[in-house]
Amino acid sequence: MLTAIFSAMEAGFIYAIMALGVYLSFRILDFPDLTVDGSFVTGAAVAAVLIINGTNPFFASAAALGAGFIAGAVTGLLHTKGKINPLLSGILMMIALYSINLRIMGRSNVPLLQQETVMTIITEAWKKTGIDNVLNSVIAFSGFQPRTWAIFITMALLAVVVKLLLDLLLKTEIGLALRATGDNQPMVSSFSANTDWLIIFGLGLSNALVAFSGALVAQYGGFSDVGMGIGMIVIGLASVIIGEALFGTRSIVRATLAVIGGAIVYRIILALALRVQFLETGDVKLITAVIVMIALIVPNIAAMHKEKRRKKRKMEEQARGEHVAGAQTDYESI
C-alpha cells in the first residue's frame, strides 16, 4: 500500500510539470489545447532517441523541451494566423504529431532500460550522499523502506522550481499581458499588446513543459511509446480540476501549487483504484474519465445543496417571522 502511494507520488511530481503546462493553456490562456496528447510523446520520443544515440540525458531532456515549444507554437500559429478554431487547431496538431513521433522514433516503442538516463544519474549521485539512510530511519516505524528517495525528492524539487518560475513569469509585464489575453482579448489589443504572438508564445511554453514532462516520464518508465500520450490532456485537466477543487485558486501562486497537488492526488487515486480486484490496467482511461467527471460534478452538487439549505433556512425564518407578526395582530385585535 505505502509502496504504491510512494511511487504514485514520484510519478505525480513528474506529471505535475505536464499539468502546469495544461494549466497555462487551459486556465491562463483559456485555450483548451489538445496538442498535449501529441507533444507529450514528442518530448518522450526526442529524449529517448537522443539518449540511445549517446546524447547526455540532461541535454536530451532540454531538447525535448524545445521540441514541445515548437509543437505548441505551431498550434498557436494555426489558431491565430490560420484563424482555425482552438479545439480544431489542437486536434490537427495532435494527429500530425502522431506521425511525426513515429518518424522521430523510427518504430512504435523505444526501450531505455539499459541506458543511462536522468533518473539513473540522479540515483547514482544520490547514493553517495547517504540521505536515504537518514530518511529511512525517520520513517522506520511505518515498516516501509523505499528503494531510493532520489527520484521522489529531486522530482518534487523540480516541479516546485517549474512552478516558481511560472509564478514569476506570470508577474512580469509579458506575463500580465499573457494572463489578460486569456481574460479579455480585445482589451489587450487596445493596450498595444500583440495577442497573436502572446497566444503562440503561451502555447509554445505550455507544450514545452508538457514535452519536458514526457521526456522525464520516458526515462522514469524506461521506454518511449507512441501511444503513451493518449488521453494525456484529460490527465492534465484532471490534475488542474482536482487541484483547484481541493486547494483553491485565490491567487496564481496558490493555483499553481494546487495543480501540483492535483497531479499527485490524481496519481494516488489511480494507484488505489488499480488495487481493486475487479479493475485492470486497461481501465486506466475509464478511471481517469470518471475521476474528472466526479471532480467536475461534485462541486456543483455541493453548491446546489448549500444554496437549497440556505433558501430553506430563509423560508423557515420568514415563516417564523410571519407567525410572530400574526400573533401580534391577534394581540392587538384583542
Binding site: K171, E173, I174, R179, A180, N184, M187, F191
Partner: peptide
Amino acid sequence: LAGTAPHMTIEENLALAYNRTKRRTLKFGV
C-alpha cells in the same frame, strides 16, 4: 466589462495599461 480584465487585480490591470506605450519585457509588471 470590455475595458478591464476581470480575473486580474486593479493594480495588475493598471500595470497592463501602463505598458501601452512601452515594449513589454520580463521585468516585474507591478
